[in-house]
Write a protein that binds this DNA or RNA. Sequence first.
DNA 1: CCAGCTGGTTCCATTATGTGGAACGGACTC
DNA 2: GAGTCCGTTCCACATAATGGAACCAGCTGG
Lengths: 273, 273
Amino acid sequence: MKRNGIMTREMLSSPGTENSGTGTLGKALSVLEIVVSADRPLRFSEILALSDQPRGTLHRHLAHLVEEGLLIQGRDLCYEPGLRLLKFAYRSWSKNQFRAVAAPHLRKLHEETGETVHLGVLRGTEIIYVDKVESRQTVRMGSQIGNASPVYCTGLGKAALSVLPQDRLAETLGKLTFHRFTANTHHSVAALKRDLDEARLRGYAFDREEHETEIRCVAAAIHDTGFDLVGGISVTGPAYRVTMEQLEIWAHPVRQAAMAISEDVEVRLGPGR
Amino acid sequence: MKRNGIMTREMLSSPGTENSGTGTLGKALSVLEIVVSADRPLRFSEILALSDQPRGTLHRHLAHLVEEGLLIQGRDLCYEPGLRLLKFAYRSWSKNQFRAVAAPHLRKLHEETGETVHLGVLRGTEIIYVDKVESRQTVRMGSQIGNASPVYCTGLGKAALSVLPQDRLAETLGKLTFHRFTANTHHSVAALKRDLDEARLRGYAFDREEHETEIRCVAAAIHDTGFDLVGGISVTGPAYRVTMEQLEIWAHPVRQAAMAISEDVEVRLGPGR
DNA sequence: CCAGCTGGTTCCATTATGTGGAACGGACTC
DNA sequence: GAGTCCGTTCCACATAATGGAACCAGCTGG
């Protein structure tokens, strides 16, 4: 019996802004998302303002979420993420085969460069960080694992886009809306396309302080033959320490690692897939 | 404005086996739980067997979960945890104030003992592991964070129970069903009660290979004044390396740490809570 | 001390949504 | 080519979600 245990197209399909379509579940999750995404416990009325649901409905959803242990409500009436999420969290992370396959490569790359190494996958118009190796071992669950960043301003995103087949690329580009994070952030499809063309030729992409100032990275794409799984791996560092020349040097090992992971993924999927 | 950002009674309330009550959401989550708890991707019919829902219903739930990104379905039709869980995961973990407050104490305790240190909270009849510091730094997100173990066979569980007010304790004991994990596992309320009495007197509890053979631990309870938050901290090690005498020695620092955390929690909650 | 907020919770008739038995159809097997 | 195992789809039915409105604090300021 062949089982893949790996991410596939479906996980990349849903649009950037989740919300509609799934009836009750979708609505409940959208309020969960609001609470989880907030950077502090929220009051009922704050959530009300952020959501587009009527009072009665929202109240019931919150009650249900609390009852299910996905949220907890302090006695000061604030809502915050509940414990049950932890359970889901850990399980989904530790069982993610893609992450597991890539992990040793990340570690090796980190040893070679000494800088932070990221693993991400493409999902719609975003890159989702799935794993990370960084110098300060104390940060155990990477500081932004699970977070999403736009494709157009990250090395990972651009690397991933650069290997996408024509149609998928066009589709994705069509859905983009640009936000100018730094002076260097791309803000037109045209400019992004040129950048992607270069990246495709080279086999790796840069982030020249396009997402955060003083932060640069090199990234290379990972993908399986069917492009069901598209992602990338990157080495990131602060501008004062990591020059563009340095990145050029690291580009090669990054690309090597990416190719190695792609191969491993293919093998672990089983050739008979 | 006082906000607590800490776990409270509500999170401890829901019964061990989640399922009913929350209408649609509850049912959807119960199937999510099945998939997430499995140790490999599951086929439709396997899930069907594990759940108590009719085919049509189950199928729709799965479809919804997939659409929401909570599950993903490989092309071999197997279901497995989706990426979106990661997002929830990380957020709920990193924002858990209780964990954050306790973290430095865990680390200190680990340095003193060299063994694995756990942080858990009581929820119904289970202890949920919220954080962990262990020797092998490579395991970054603790191997069982988010997991739950029965109260009656873990040091953490017994420590937590031992500080519970009469009524809460009775209520919890009433709900227990015993499973014999090892030869030493308690399997009667009477025996457990005796053990708890001792623990209460001493101020700490042991796990004498009651959950897993060859694994021992000492634990001490953490709680706030209102017993809204009850949990504990423990030092665990393999029997061949950690004798009962050794545990007796560690008991003191463990208790110290637990008290320190209790205090910190109280302070961070703000006295005006 | 009472009028007038603001913020959270509860009700309940309406109707949209989820329900689940049954039928379908493809792939494999004997 | 009949038999079955499995996943998927349909559809009449009943349940569960909906959301407007009323309700009930706890404050605040006149």
